[in-house]
Computed example of a mutant assay.
Amino acid sequence: MVTPWPYPDEHARPVQPPPPGQGGPADEDTRIAAAVAQRISSDGTTRRQQIAVSVQNRVVILTGIVTDPATRQVAGDIAWEVTDVFDVCNALRLARPRRLAR
């Protein structure tokens, strides 16, 4: 049987996380989330929609409610345009039309 990982005492060095602000994964995700949120809030189509942006491992996750399918598509397109985005999960839901009172 072959062990795929070395034993801890075999030339193991503890992995040091990068100092804050020097390109760690969390810093990159935060930068991407801020860029996507800023672009969504400044776009005329998506500005007044209920859209939340989160990022995990460079994957943008859009959640919330939008008024129509075109707005949902625009929000996803905006997220894709941000540098270093690996994937976009567009979980935006369409608002249900209000029924008229009888």
Rank of each mutant, 00 (worst) to 15 (best):
P4C: 07
D43Y: 03
R93K: 15
Q49V: 02
N90Q: 14
G24A: 06
R58F: 05
P14V: 06
Q50W: 12
R48P: 02
G21W: 12
V88W: 01
D84G: 00
A26W: 13
P19E: 15
P18G: 04
V74D: 01
A33D: 07
A52T: 14
D9T: 01
A70N: 11
P19C: 09
V2D: 12
A33V: 00
A52N: 15
V59L: 09
H11M: 12
P69W: 04
R96P: 12
T71S: 06
I78C: 00
S41F: 08
D29F: 05
G24D: 13
R102F: 09
T45K: 12
N90G: 02
V66H: 01
P8E: 13
G21Y: 09
A75T: 01
T71E: 06
T71G: 07
D77P: 05
I51G: 13
D29P: 03
L92P: 05
G76M: 04
D29Q: 03
R93M: 15
P69R: 08
A95E: 13
G64P: 05
D29V: 02
E81M: 07
V15I: 03
P20D: 09
P20L: 11
A33H: 06
P14L: 10
V82C: 04
G44I: 01
V66I: 02
D43S: 00
P69M: 12
R93N: 15
V60A: 02
N57K: 14
F86E: 04
I32L: 06
Q73R: 15
A37P: 00
V88Y: 01
L62D: 11
D68W: 02
V59N: 15
E28P: 05
A101K: 14
V55I: 03
Y7C: 07
V60Q: 00
A26R: 11
R98E: 15
F86W: 05
T45W: 06
L94C: 10
H11S: 13
F86Y: 08
P69S: 09
R39V: 02
R98L: 01
S54I: 02
L62G: 01
E28K: 14
V74W: 01
P14F: 10
E28Q: 15
A12H: 12
A34S: 15
I51Y: 10
P6N: 08
Q22F: 08
D84L: 03
V59H: 13
G24R: 03
A37N: 12
H11L: 07
R47P: 03
L100H: 11
A70Y: 07
T67D: 15
